[in-house]
């Protein structure tokens, strides 16, 4: 039986529809990510699951219990906010202990559990500091500890890392995943960062305009995008119309669809058995750390990504090249 079930969720604000027919089945201990552009409704789902916003229609059950009418304080759902929402009048220790105090846990247990939790997020030495005395990363760890200490059934993470710089964000992504595995906790993360989603999730629900566009494992989402929106949002797919791609390849494609996608890294300059070929003039090259992304002008513009090799880069701008792709890497979009 699924641990958290969302069925037929709809949300309207006045005449504006924010969510349309959202259905999700989540297992215990799964790390789920809601991925999508700003304003697609992913945070609204979290707020409805938490009970902070009412749904216009639909049902949410946690461990088989219908959450309709259950107050946020009684749902046993934790949440970490983008702006941390730490209580400014309390120290780190008091912030983390707050949930246990509300549950009237005895003082000795509170102290012990707070110490354990602060150790888990590596903040034991900051126990007596106030939130304003901490860095953004430290504040987010306190927020995480405060949410985890009450042992919620589901932990909701509303873009918790988006305000942090890249290095700290990557470190916290790893920490978050490690803690989630250690506690076997069901977590739902909201993010608009596809790399973050790929790095931490068991499953990703990609959202667009208030509905779920596709869901699957990170590998499924990345290698088999269902439609043009997913192909564009995940990675830097080349999306071609049937006519343009058939002209470039010089073959008739058998799949019944109007658009096709090719991953930039699936293109290469050396020909292998069974490869198809598209030609284009090299127009622009951008170095992105370990990746070099080259834009070609063929029947239509497309990009190719290569690993940045020590011996340097051999493509000359303005020169015509043949790029090869395996048949199975040409993905038909619905």
């Amino acid at each position: 039986m699924s641990y958290l079930v969302i069925e037929g969720l709809h949300k309207k604000y006045g005449q504006s529809t924010v969510l349309t027919n959202i259905n999700m089945d989540i297992q215990k201990g799964e790390f789920i990510t809601l991925l999508g552009p700003s304003g697609c409704g992913k945070s609204t789902i979290l707020r409805i699951v938490a009970g902070l916003t009412d749904a216009s229609a639909g049902k949410i059950t946690i461990e088989g219990k219908d959450m309709s009418g259950v107050q946020p304080k009684d749902r046993q759902v934790g949440m970490v906010f983008q702006s941390y929402a730490l209580f400014p009048n309390m120290t780190v220790q008091e912030n983390v202990a707050f949930g246990l105090r509300m549950q009237k846990v005895n003082a000795t247990d509170i102290e012990q559990r707070v110490q354990e939790m602060l150790a888990l997020v590596h903040l034991s030495e900051k126990a007596n500091a106030y939130p304003k005395e901490l860095s953004g990363g430290q504040q987010q760890r306190v927020a995480l500890a405060r949410a985890l200490i009450v042992r919620p059934k589901v932990l909701l993470l509303d873009e918790p890392l988006s305000a942090l710089d890249a290095q700290i964000r990557k470190k916290l992504q790893a920490d978050l995943r490690a803690i989630q595995r250690k506690l076997n906790m069901t977590m739902i993360l909201v993010t608009h960062d596809q790399e973050e989603a790929m790095a931490v999730s068991d499953r990703i629900f990609v959202m667009n305009n208030g509905s779920i566009a596709q869901n699957g494992t990170p590998t499924e989402i990345y290698t088999r995008p269902d439609n043009e929106f997913i192909a564009n949002f995940i990675g830097h797919y080349n999306v071609f119309t049937r006519q343009a791609l058939e002209q470039m390849l010089g073959v008739t494609l058998l799949e019944h669809c109007s658009k096709f996608a090719i991953r930039p890294e699936a293109l290469h300059l050396d020909q292998r058995d069974g490869d198809m070929c598209i030609a284009g003039i090299a127009k622009q090259s951008l170095m992105n750390g370990n990746i070099i992304r080259t834009t070609f002008d063929g029947e239509t513009m497309f990009t190719m990504e290569q690993l940045h090799q020590q011996q340097g880069y051999s493509i000359e701008m303005g020169k015509s090249y043949k790029c090869y792709v395996a048949k199975e890497d040409v993905i038909a979009l619905s």
Binding site: P72, G99, A147, V150
Partner: peptide
């Protein structure tokens, strides 16, 4: 948001 956070903590 502080109110929301406090309510979710019980």
């Amino acid at each position: 948001q502080l109110l929301d956070a406090a309510q979710l903590l019980g």
